[in-house]
């Protein structure tokens, strides 16, 4: 099923064709992604939803170059990442992709600031001070930069992770249940930050979630079931998302 017919691959931040991922063999064989095309428009906040086992996490892993697809092509910012070797893929990841995870995933030994700067440090690049200042101020982390992760609250940790993802001005930021470990108020705060980064900074965001409230912050919701794309909602609300999900039998 084709959601949007792409003109050229460069129109999209992320674009994949015939994406196929199979786990196991014989009786344990699972088709996690059943060969479909998918594209994400630049500067939009897209949520991927679906019941457990629908393949939404696998889709994200493959799109981010963390997992190899068995078949198909994946373009990030016009680069075909399915042909890259590990080093090139790693470099692509640190330059063009940002991550925000469910369990914050900060390096416990480093301060908040060092965590934010880590991808640039790995690349051996200088950071743009003004940009860092902007992000830190926007995310309200100014007085927390010298703290270690364990000295920060869950919401603060997740904001550090968001700052880390935004600092490199990546082609796309992937979020894997970014509010899964947060209470609803802090979760809403982080989601607002993600949405405003799309609206104000033009940041492309792809978020995997099974929370209808979280999905309602997105511009577009893609629905998955059993390894296939089965629907799409524009300008979703909590009600439309919940309705669509119950239509999938979730």
């Amino acid at each position: 099923m084709t959601i949007t017919a792409p003109q050229t691959s460069t129109d999209f931040a992320v674009h994949a064709t015939n994406l196929t991922k199979i786990y196991g063999e014989g009786t344990t064989r699972v088709e996690a992604l059943r060969g479909f095309d998918v594209s994400f428009v630049r500067g939009k906040f897209t949520a991927i939803m679906g019941p457990s086992g629908s393949g939404k996490s696998t889709l994200m892993h493959c799109l981010a170059g963390l997992d190899d697809a068995n078949d198909g092509q994946i373009f990030i910012g016009g680069t075909d990442i399915s042909k890259l070797n590990d080093d090139a893929l790693t470099k692509m990841r640190r330059e063009k992709v940002g991550f925000v995870f469910q369990s914050f995933n900060l390096v416990p030994t480093l301060t908040a600031e060092a965590n934010i700067l880590l991808p640039l440090a790995l690349a051996g690049k200088k950071h743009d001070k003004a940009w860092l200042e902007t992000i830190v101020t926007t995310l309200g982390l100014g007085d927390r930069l010298n703290h270690k992760p364990h000295e920060l609250s869950g919401g603060q940790q997740q904001r550090v992770a968001v700052a880390r993802a935004l600092l490199t001005r990546p082609e796309v930021v992937f979020g894997d249940e970014p509010t899964g470990n947060l209470d609803s108020r802090t979760g809403a705060e982080v989601l607002s930050l993600l949405r405003s980064s799309t609206r104000e900074m033009g940041q492309t965001i792809i978020m995997v979630t099974h929370d209808a409230v979280a999905a309602s912050y997105a511009d577009t919701v893609l629905l998955m079931k059993d390894g296939e794309l089965v629907g799409q909602l524009e300008d979703p609300t909590v009600e439309t998302v919940t309705q669509a999900l119950s239509g999938l039998g979730a």
Binding site: K91, R93, N105, V107
Partner: peptide, 16 residues
């Protein structure tokens, strides 16, 4: 392991 994997995700090369 998890920490090292995180580093890899964030763009640390194997040799790094």
């Amino acid at each position: 392991t998890r920490e090292l994997a995180l580093m890899r995700t964030l763009g640390a090369l194997r040799k790094q």
